[in-house]
Design a protein around this nucleic acid. Structure first.
Ligand SMILES: [Mn+2]
Ligand SMILES: [Mn+2]
Ligand SMILES: [Mn+2]
Ligand SMILES: [Mn+2]
Lengths: 216, 216
DNA sequence: TAAAAAATTTAGATTAGTCTAAAAATTTAA
DNA sequence: TTAAATTTTTAGACTAATCTAAATTTTTTA
């Protein structure tokens, strides 16, 4: 149907489309660690196949059909991540690269049965929503810890960054999905935050507070 | 490490090596549904990488390193088949094609954890042995039903053919792995066999009797 | 044991995906 | 509002895997 590479392009365009209407060649190249010239070639091919809307020099958007393909890859990626964490005891920082491979396994039957086997989970280990077999999903409404005020509480429900380094750091501080936190102090000089998780006080930088998300 | 295609060649050579010492270009081409000219090219590459022993016009054998790669692919193939049948309720005739894709997922960690998750099974859904993480395995000692005599009994433990059509046929007759059978009659004209499984009499052709295997 | 047949390899193309370097278009900013 | 900077596309090449057709080697067989 679509090649491994085409699927990766569609997924990248989908993710980049969340921030802006139209996605540029250079952004795609950066996101896939490839060169702009290669991207241009692929954009022509994807447009040819009716998966993207592409006008020279104007950037691209996904067509309905392209979005459907992208969402299916994302569904598979997140379901496999859930499987790896919940059934095979992987840590949340170890699953992304394996899921990058597994997401390209084509069998629809496999994904749907896997989904059922796990009880049709709605969110992956990082708090990202898992599209159902029709591509429908509901994202949590989230805000970064950095926007909270002193004495407010919230439940950790997502992350804005998925690097193993960041996830490992969070885990070490017990700042994982589902934990309830309370803002104890905000340092007005560097915007770092002291919060409490399970009666322990943790001091996090502004950057961390920006990338750690709380359910509204 | 090795490409998807290289892995498929090594696996094909491994399977063909069971019947003969040295494997020919044409046999590989037939087994992979490709052309002899393509095979020759790939053999040069695999020899270059030290994965096969290849002398022009003389056929090939796997090196120790090539065999190790092949066994790892086979390990993954069979473990995934076991997973699909035991955990996701696939039928034994539905798993092969999906496993052909899954066997190329590279993560060693994934396979080993999957192995543990399922309790380190020794045989796949078709009775084929699953190599352990060191590539060691023990095949059942098997003989075809066609070599059995009247009134002898045995336990179905493997198949010589893996086509969905054959497997579906067997399933319909209740002739599945683990079932005990007894030879009731052998038709000396066409070598067809009447046997009993769980008090039911089943009439199978010589061809089926040849491809259905009993533990010694 | 020399033709004929079969198997295998080589030669030359093709396709997907990638790259660098150069050209063209767009955006920015003086 | 034109020149400079940036972005994007084109041109031309390369690699992996494949193919067909032709050449070569091995095997068969008469
Ligand atoms: Mn991921
Ligand atoms: Mn995730
Ligand atoms: Mn199989
Ligand atoms: Mn099998």
């Amino acid at each position: 149907m679509n090649t491994f590479t085409e699927e990766n392009y569609l997924k990248a365009i989908y993710h980049l489309s969340i921030k802006e209407e139209s996605v540029s060649t250079n952004e795609i190249a950066a996101s896939l660690s490839t060169k702009a010239a290669s991207v241009t070639d692929m954009l022509k091919k994807l447009a040819e196949k009716g998966l993207i809307n592409y006008t020279k020099y104007q950037g691209v958007t996904l067509t309905a059909s392209g979005e459907k393909v992208a969402l299916n890859i994302i569904r598979k990626h997140r379901l496999w991540e859930y499987f790896l964490v919940e059934k095979l005891n992987f840590k949340w920082d170890e699953v992304h690269d394996v899921a990058e491979e597994l997401e390209h396994i084509s069998s629809k039957e496999l994904v749907d049965r896997l989904d059922d086997f796990m009880g049709n989970p709605k969110y992956d280990p990082h708090g990202d929503p898992i599209p159902d077999r029709n591509g429908k999903f509901k994202a949590y409404e989230l805000k970064p810890v950095s926007t909270m005020e002193v004495n407010h509480t919230g439940v950790i429900s997502g992350v804005r960054e998925h690097s193993p380094a960041f996830l490992q750091y969070l885990e070490k501080q017990q700042l994982v999905i589902g934990k309830k936190i309370k803002i104890e102090e905000i340092n007005s000089y560097d915007h770092s935050v002291i919060l409490s998780v399970e009666d322990k006080r943790v001091h996090i930088s502004r950057e961390v507070a920006n990338n750690l998300l709380i359910a509204l």
